[in-house]
Write a protein that binds this DNA or RNA. Structure first.
Length: 503
RNA sequence: UCCUCUGUAGCUCAGUCGGUAGAGCAGUUGGCUGUUAACCAAUUGGUCGUAGGUUCGAGUCCUACCGGGGGAGCCA
């Protein structure tokens, strides 16, 4: 085989369009040659691809799981789905098909099949082409009396209990395809914008990340923990010191930003907080850009530009899945995202936001006062009622924010920023970092932290310090925002939460 | 951790004033039709989360515990 398709058209090379013209030329001897030698790419075998073809009698191989079968007197209609798209392909099995009586009862919801057949025009209304089978192999049966997934709607709570099967549903298939597209878009955005992807560590020895409760990492025999004078002797542990799972890659990312200018991290993050809400996970994925020679304004610009880019990318590349969310999960979400991608985010200082909330006349469970942290109800009121779009709140009181945030000239506020979005509230937290050695040292001491723990962080301000900024974006929250899924446990393949560690 | 709602058939739910358990879907059987989460008919299926208590009698009222949802806090 020489890479030609049966229809005589050029073969499809899935990732060449993402490369620049120069890259395509340069690859003629490399990637291109490798692809040319392949009979069929994996992409060409997907139902998503087959559904784009014309029903001109060509032979196709359909491999997937049966979603439903409808029997008629003369024919059976089988919907096969392989997750490459939310759409299923229809296979029409004539009663005269050899072995019909033996095969047809096994073609049930959930069974996996490999069907060779001809792609022909459909007599039905909802598809232009369908498969007329030549050969049907049942690869894996699924007992109808036991298979938990039905054709009807299930509750998300039930599906969480069968997380090994839920990706076969429309909703979770769509969520995971969109999650994938967003992951790709994130890397593409940063790559195209001069950022270097830095792999910050998962295991950390610094308990100074300051973003929440940490999970401990130990190699001790827990039934026999070495102690000295009653206290745990960490010098005997694997790393010779206390170790944890990271709660943020930020401090490490700052190191690389102050060497490579623009960097980002995108990896798992762990918080041992006993948060029991629809917006929290114990293990989640976080995106943390960090930019040298960048102040809080540049930070806000990047955050806004980035979010709009991701929204635009999903709207342009995941139309089928987004239409599903739009009709089944959150009515009007497409219009909502289109609006957000096209409009300027609101920008307001904390001080102005407090005044705005006070004069709104709105009654809050927690009264608003300068100096308190904004509560969820305040954040949602700002973004949903006042602005009706995302809003960036900046310059918070220093006492309610982290030690590393840059102090403003007023001595009372820091250059922090939170991006608030409708439906969810806070989706991004970030700041310009304090780059003055003495001011940072002062903040560390003021907050009762041990400056020895921060020696390398302080040295970054001692040698070639530069203004720099960054933010953290919760990936799953962004997926919630894009898909309209209400519970964060339903936008990650296998959620980890308090008292939940299944699968 | 706190507040709140909830737990009934494989799934989604109803169950009145405390009177002894029901629907839709799924499954099974039959019928019908180029069907579109097909349709029509029949039918199987429940220790009402668990343990106590009140009562002649508890799915229903009370107590405790367990599971799940929503909200709050913490945060992304």
């Amino acid at each position: 085989m020489n890479g030609r398709r049966e229809d005589g058209k050029s073969p499809v090379f899935p990732f060449l369009p993402f490369m620049g013209k120069g890259a395509q030329r340069a690859d003629r001897g490399g990637v291109y040659e490798i692809y040319k030698k392949r009979d069929k790419t994996m992409k060409e075998k997907t139902i998503k691809h087959i559904l784009t073809l014309e029903g001109d009698g060509r032979e196709v191989l359909v491999e997937g799981w049966i979603r439903t079968r409808r029997d008629s007197k003369e024919v059976s209609f089988i919907a096969v789905n392989d997750g490459s798209t939310m759409n299923s392909i229809q296979v029409v099995l004539e009663r005269t098909f050899p072995g019909y009586d033996e095969i047809n009862p096994r073609l049930v919801n959930g069974a996996s099949v490999s069907i060779k057949g001809k792609l022909v025009p459909s007599l039905g209304k909802e598809q232009s082409a369908e498969v007329s089978p030549l050969e049907i192999k049942i690869l894996g049966d699924a007992s109808p009396e036991e298979y938990p997934l039905q054709k009807k709607r299930h509750s998300f709570e039930f599906l969480r209990e069968i997380a090994h099967l839920r990706p076969r549903t429309n909703t979770f298939g769509s969520v995971m395809r969109v999650r994938n597209a967003m992951s790709f878009a994130i890397h593409k955005y940063f790559n195209d914008n001069g950022f270097v992807y830095v792999h910050t560590p998962i295991i950390t020895g610094s308990d100074c990340e300051g973003a929440g409760e940490m999970f401990h990492v130990t190699n001790f025999d827990l039934n026999n923990i070495p102690r000295v004078e009653g206290k745990i002797d960490y010098t005997k542990d694997f790393f010779g010191k206390e170790a944890s799972l990271t709660v943020s890659g930020q401090l490490n990312a700052e190191i690389y930003a102050l060497a490579l200018k623009n960097v980002y991290t995108f990896g798992p993050t762990f918080r041992a907080e006993k948060s029991n809400t629809s917006r929290h996970l114990a293990e989640f994925w976080m995106i943390e850009p960090e930019m040298a020679f960048c102040d809080i304004t540049g930070n806000m610009d990047t955050a806004e530009h980035f979010i709009k880019y991701i929204l635009r990318y999903v709207l342009d590349n995941c139309a089928d899945d987004m239409n599903f969310f739009n009709s089944m999960i959150e009515k009007g979400i497409i219009e909502n995202l289109e609006h957000i991608a096209a409009s300027e985010f609101g920008r307001i200082t904390y001080t102005d936001a407090v005044n705005e909330l006070k004069k709104s006349g709105q009654k809050f469970e927690f009264p608003v006062e300068w100096g308190i942290d904004l509560q969820s109800e305040h954040e949602k009121f700002l973004t949903q009622e006042v602005y009706k779009k995302p809003v960036i709140v900046t310059d918070y009181p220093k006492d309610i924010k982290a030690f590393y945030m840059k102090l403003n000239d007023d001595g009372k506020t820091v250059r922090a920023m939170d991006v608030l979005v409708p439906r969810l509230g806070e989706i991004i937290g970030g700041s310009e970092r304090e780059n003055d050695y003495n001011k940072l040292l002062g903040r560390i001491n003021d907050m009762g932290l041990n400056e020895k723990d921060y020696w390398w962080y302080l040295e970054l301000r001692k040698y070639g310090s530069a203004p720099h900024s960054g933010f953290g974006l919760g990936f799953e929250r962004l997926i919630q925002f894009v898909t309209g899924m209400q519970n964060i446990r339903d936008v990650i393949p296998f959620p980890r939460c308090v008292d939940t560690l299944d699968f």
